[in-house]
Amino acid sequence: MTTSGSPISAADVAKVARLARLDIDNAHIEHFTEQLGKVMAHFADIDALNLDGVTPMTQPYPLVNVMRDDVEMPTLDTDEVLAAAPAAEERRFRVPPIIGIEG
């Protein structure tokens, strides 16, 4: 596993861009690689910390069991919502052919 001190490679950045669905051209990949590398290098400071036995903090305030009753609430107006969509047809949201996607 890479530690947070090591720089990010252009290949890493390209892979991340693919995962994040951002079409970034090669020139930008280099630019991002340099900038992210600097940022990640700065973040190497936490490598020095001994974090054994520390419980990760995922919530700032410790609430538990927040639930709602199984009761219907108002729904949105289909026409209003579809009017805001980039493309719609037959009361549905239209998208280009789905190819080359995991699923």
């Binding site: 709602r68 009761v71 219907e72 609430m73 108002p74 729904t75 949105l76 289909t78 919502v81 579809l82 037959e90 009361r91 549905r92 949201f93």
Partner: peptide, 16 residues
Amino acid sequence: SGSPNRFGDEPNVNID
């Protein structure tokens, strides 16, 4: 969310 969980309705009515 409180939208109905119902099978067979018109498309995009049980939305919030």
